[in-house]
Nucleic acid binder design. Structure first.
Lengths: 323, 323
DNA sequence: GGTTAACATCGAATCGTTTCGATCGAAACG
DNA sequence: CGTTTCGATCGAAACGATTCGATGTTAACC
């Protein structure tokens, strides 16, 4: 009544219920059996007092974990624009969520060093985020890296970029293509692996250039290249979005796809701006996310985790045809 | 050497440095002045022992805050597919980040009730997330709602959807349009406001239907409508993505935009799949994000925050013309 | 009927800081 | 020179739970 109402604690509830502090704690957490009648008495007392449950910060301190996993994604808006990122993040969030943990976005910029994270995922990892990595190692925070490269002390979840591109190359070679060009991503582990895979089949593939997974960027890149009327019969892109851009641009210039030019992508994401099925390498995105989350949870429990490399699958669509 | 190395605490550092625990704490936090020589002695001791800084969970408990702000976004992949969401999130993350706070994604599904959040943002708030809202109120967690509706106890950040649509309607009316149709979003506060605004100018506007902010969905919706060869001269969409879909579909059916049909959108986001500038209502997305983050920070400090309604701006592009 | 086992409850220790209030010496002031 | 002020340091009290080990109490078993 008079004066500031002090914060309610579990001790207050215990007193009101006529049980010990420890019993009240058990009534809430259920970590050890409590008789039904006592539990109800405690919960009733809590309801009467208006106690809204154990203080989570106190629990965190005692248990030595925060329940929060960070995910480094570089610049937010860039990272999420990649349609391949979303299904993965979705799966991660779902698995962690059902384990009672939350996913915290870590931009490049800011001082997340001050947040108590139970683990960190390096997903669309820019070079910039590596600095923070050392700090995590010092603080013994488990790290899981998605899409390589492998770091000391970090667990790895990856897909077999290389094999996928080999398959794709073989497919094109089988169709009779001999002169192919490629649109790549900016330098990164997946970029290097995919390129290497393609070059196992076509060592002399022409690199048109690198650009982000962005429709307009790929379109303009393809535009300047196609303007020179090159004699390639196929263009392999390192993402479906790029491939879509190339298809649109080719058509704009009067080239039939796949009649005059075959185009292939990577990822296996929806391409709503195309009316054909893209030939591409399909990543198991959701599974990648789940594997990542599983690795995180295991690492938090202190278990060792073997690196994971998931298989990919070539999907032959309508965007590739005989040379 | 022998045995498990116990966790290092600030007390160990203090002892090694020959100062009191409280002084050691101050040396790290800088919350009160400490002589230069003592600070260095403490930091040196910490470095020698391999102490990686004060335990953040303990600090959180003591200070009564976690440094984490939740953001409710419904299903992750859906929320982030909306290009209008990203610049806002980006701004939120940036402002919070520079205040040393982190942004935690809250999906519909899971038990984020167990995480100690300092505040929660309801952004792309589905009906589903409301249940959790009551819980937040009980626990006295500040809530900021973006894009309405206003809830008891929550701060509000919004843009003037209604006025924007009135302006847009006036623009079309000025061009001579009298029969217009509209593509709306699923029921939500912005949806209702935008519709109401349009109907201030065109009370009899035909509702084509509702769909998510998704190119393909809008395209198919527009397709079935345009197939009936309606006599409308303009279609107003509640998002730019929808508008882009309508433009593409109209052209596919041989209608010139804006010659035969004017099309307008809402948001002011890039539409890379169009070669024209969309007439639209431009939201100040980054500012919306900043305002949201500011409100969050103030509410955490216990300050009261006035609701914010940001102005929008009509951008006349090439997708609308005389009726 | 005596020995175990299982269960419910309790008291006390612990998690590792931050921060309040007091102390002490030195500098500033009139 | 006596008094105030200030800065640096310290000891002790929070912060609010979880959990270990101990203590009765009752049920089960041969």
């Amino acid at each position: 009544m008079s004066g500031q109402t002090r914060t309610l604690t579990l001790a207050d509830v215990a007193a009101a219920a006529g049980v010990s502090l420890s019993t009240a704690s058990l009534a809430f957490s259920g970590n050890k059996p409590v008789s039904e009648v006592t539990r109800e008495r405690v919960l009733a007392a809590a309801a009467t007092l208006g106690y809204s449950g154990p203080n989570l910060l106190a629990r965190n301190l005692r248990q030595g974990r925060s329940g929060v996993v960070g995910i480094a994604v570089g610049k937010l808006s860039t990272a999420f624009q990649d349609p391949a990122a979303l299904p993965m993040m979705d799966a991660v969030s779902q698995v962690l969520g059902s384990a009672g943990m939350g996913l915290l976005l870590m931009g490049d910029d800011d001082g997340h060093a001050r947040l108590p994270l139970d683990a960190v995922i390096y997903a669309v990892c820019g070079r910039d985020t590596w600095a923070a990595y050392d700090d995590l190692v010092v603080r013994d925070v488990p790290v899981v890296v998605v899409d390589g490269p492998s770091w000391a002390g970090a667990s790895l979840v990856d897909v077999d970029h290389r094999a996928g591109c080999v398959d794709l190359g073989a497919h094109l070679h089988g169709l009779g293509h001999r002169r192919v060009a490629t649109v790549t991503l900016e330098a990164s582990h997946p970029q290097r692996e995919r390129d290497a895979g393609l070059r196992e089949v076509f060592p002399d593939a022409v690199t048109i250039g690198a650009c982000p997974s962005d429709l307009a960027a790929a379109q303009s890149l393809a535009g300047t290249y196609l303007a020179e009327r090159p004699d390639v019969t196929a263009i392999v892109c390192q993402s479906d979005v790029q491939a879509a851009g190339v298809v649109l641009e080719a058509r704009r210039r009067g080239l039939a796809v796949p009649g005059d030019l075959s185009v292939a992508g990577f990822d296996g994401v929806p391409t709503p701006w195309l009316d054909l099925v893209l030939t591409t390498v399909v990543q198991p995105l959701a599974e990648k996310g789940r594997a990542t989350a599983d690795a995180v949870l295991k690492r938090i429990e202190g278990e060792d985790v073997a690196d994971v490399v998931l298989p990919v699958e070539l999907r032959v669509g309508d965007s590739t045809g005989p040379a």
